[in-house]
Design a binder for these strands. Structure first.
Length: 577
RNA sequence: CGGGGUGUGGCUCAGCUUGGUAGAGCGCUGCGUUCGGGUCGCAGAGGUCGGAGGUUCAAAUCCUCUCACCCCGACCA
């Protein structure tokens, strides 16, 4: 491809709205153009990258017998009411939905469990037809609360989604395992450093799930990993062993202490310097929303721990939990915010506790009276210990549950997520089959997603330098960049042209910067920005039939013959898989 | 949703406080110059200052409304 035949425009300045490097660089290089918040035009170079990723995705799925299809982006409300997800998605505001001319409500698909289930339930009657794994690559629509980081969190994005249908839980797990391996191969082939982690299932539902995280400091997700044991989990899901509580000094009677103005553990720490955080118990009030109803829940947690709202949400199996507003706190505690405690809460306030409070005695807690806390409180003596569940957020330095290692918190970009759905959708939507024993059973499902556009963004996030992007060979828009110094020089023209045609003839994606009147400096800057991994400079050595060979990632350059450079290129492509 | 901020040529921004109807750099066009890491010079093109309304002799600038975009909040009892 000749650069002069392309719409090729680069920018010297970072766009003002780019927060992360991948976003800024892709916009500067003309790969991306924002149309609206979270909605982008993929330029010709970007589209080549996306198609290369798609090709890898297709090859790996097809190889394992998955079948590609394409489902509609526009979906009827009725389908979403069958699965019971309409209300949740609408109340979270994620669903793009509107009425058609007849007044029927439809949405733009954020995911396709409903559609694929309704498709499969009509076609599959017998266990003999299973297992089936279907997938598609399609644009998804989610009206994100806060789109950001360019392609990382858009409102319209390209996703590969796959769905497996099996006769039993065990069979489902086989399909799940197959997809897990497919995913490992895909991300490895894309040249990414990634970590598979245990994950929360979120709005999709189901039991087991794992996420594939591309390691990146700018990732939106925090993950808990342990080098010693290999444990890795999304922080939403991660569990750890809570350190032992300190023994209280002496068994004194419960008493009130005036604590005006002390509304946080930090404040109380200053007031009672001898009292460790592990002997303070926080009481955090949440509003629990379920349908139209709202009810306050008080959650106890040791002073050195934080509450994991995802775990709370899952435990309460409800639509949403949000931190209670000040009025709700006043009603529930009879005090200004900052003095909530487990003793003397208003009727109807449910009390639950994180495991971290187990064994804590002689502790401090809020007095449910403005400016007052209780001191030397004992479970069993002054109040019953409420039910405890794991509701806490793991922290850097925690021990793993098995006690064999320490947890580290790192960050990652979620590029893939696989779920064991079980029969949640098949039961709700009547996707059943006739088993060998002639009984009708619901199919066991799994669903599996890859953010194709996000893979591209995370590849840049992981591979760039001050001058621009550095694409991994397998997903680079072009593999080889011929940078011709002086276009119009007959020797250079002939050499570059021959090299270009030769490489194209070998099936190598080659971009030839044949722009006239663009100075060498500008060409190098553009080449660095665009980040094509292999580079051949046709310049002063052309008279000797030689060119300069280098890689975008490396700093070494060598002057070689055309034959040698072709060998180098083929070797580099083979090495990249 | 709450809080904050920003909308001025394709891009990055200045001008706004103290109203007098527009500037810079990059990019773009032409000519010359230069020719291995964003040459230099000269001459140009390009903007209803997000939109609507208001105040005023006069509005990019002040007021009201509206739209768009961006950031922060969402560990706190």
């Amino acid at each position: 491809m000749k650069l002069t035949q392309m719409l090729f425009v680069t920018m010297r300045d970072d766009p003002s709205d780019a927060e992360v490097r991948s976003h800024a660089l892709m916009v500067r290089a003309g790969f991306l153009h924002k149309l609206a918040s979270g909605i982008y035009v993929y330029g010709p170079m970007m589209w080549r990258v996306l198609r290369k990723i798609e090709t890898i995705v297709r090859e790996e799925h097809d190889r394992e017998g998955c079948q590609e299809l394409l489902m509609p982006a526009v979906q009827p409300r009725e389908l979403w009411e069958e699965s019971g997800r309409w209300d949740r998605y609408v109340s979270e505001g994620i669903l793009f939905h509107f009425k058609d001319r007849k007044g029927s409500e439809v949405c733009l698909g954020p995911t396709h469990e409903e559609v694929v289930t309704s498709y499969v339930r009509r076609l599959v009657q017998s266990h003999k037809q299973l297992p089936v794994i279907l997938y598609q690559i399609q644009t998804k629509f989610r009206d994100e609360i806060r789109p950001r980081f360019g392609l990382m969190r858009g409102r319209e994005f390209i996703m590969k989604d796959a769905y497996s249908f099996d006769v039993s839980k065990e069979a489902m797990q086989v399909s799940y395992g197959k997809l897990r391996e497919i995913y490992r191969r895909i991300f490895t082939r894309c040249g990414l450093n990634f970590t598979p982690v245990e994950a929360d299932s979120g709005a999709i539902g189901g039991s087991g799930s794992e996420e594939f995280m591309v390691d990146a400091d700018t990732g939106e997700d925090a993950i808990a990993v342990c080098r010693e044991t290999g444990y890795a989990a999304n922080i939403e899901r991660a569990a750890s062993r809570v350190s032992d509580p300190p023994k209280p000094a002496e068994k004194v009677a419960i008493h009130k202490e005036p604590t005006p103005g002390a509304t946080s553990c930090d404040d109380l720490k200053k007031l009672f310097p001898d009292l460790p955080l592990t002997r303070m118990i926080k009481t955090v009030l949440y509003n629990v929303e379920d349908g139209g109803d709202q009810a306050p829940v008080a959650v106890l947690c040791r002073g050195d721990r934080a509450i994991n709202e995802i775990k709370l949400l899952n435990h309460l199996s409800t639509l949403a939990v949000t931190l209670a507003d000040e009025d709700t706190v006043r009603k529930a505690t009879g005090a200004e915010p900052g003095y909530a405690g487990p003793i003397g809460l208003q009727e109807g306030v449910r009390l639950i506790a994180d495991r971290s409070i187990e064994g804590v005695d002689g502790f401090l807690c809020g007095g449910n009276e403005t400016g007052t806390h209780y001191l030397d409180v004992w479970f069993g003596r002054d109040l019953e210990q409420p039910e405890t569940v794991d509701l806490s957020l793991v922290a850097e330095g925690d021990s793993t549950v098995d006690g064999k290692g320490k947890i580290e918190i790192t960050r990652g970009i979620e590029v893939g997520h696989i779920f064991q759905l079980g029969t949640k959708y098949s039961e709700a939507m009547g996707a059943t089959f006739e088993a060998e024993d002639q009984k009708t059973r619901p199919m066991w499902m799994g669903c599996y997603g890859i953010g194709v556009s996000r893979v591209a963004a995370s590849a840049v996030e992981q591979n760039h330098d001050d001058n621009g992007m550095i694409w991994p060979v397998p997903i680079a828009p072009y593999t080889v960049h011929i940078v011709q110094m002086s276009v119009g020089d007959e020797t250079q023209d002939a050499l570059a042209s021959k090299l270009h045609d030769d490489l194209e003839g070998r099936g190598v994606d080659v971009l030839w910067d044949d722009r006239k009147k663009v100075r060498p400096g500008a060409k190098f800057k553009d080449a660095d920005l665009v980040g094509i991994p292999l580079r051949v400079v046709v310049g002063r050595d052309a008279a000797d039939g030689k060119v300069e060979w280098s890689t975008r990632a490396g700093s070494e350059r060598s002057v070689v013959t055309v034959l040698e450079v072709i060998a180098n290129i083929e070797q580099a492509i083979a090495a990249a898989g």
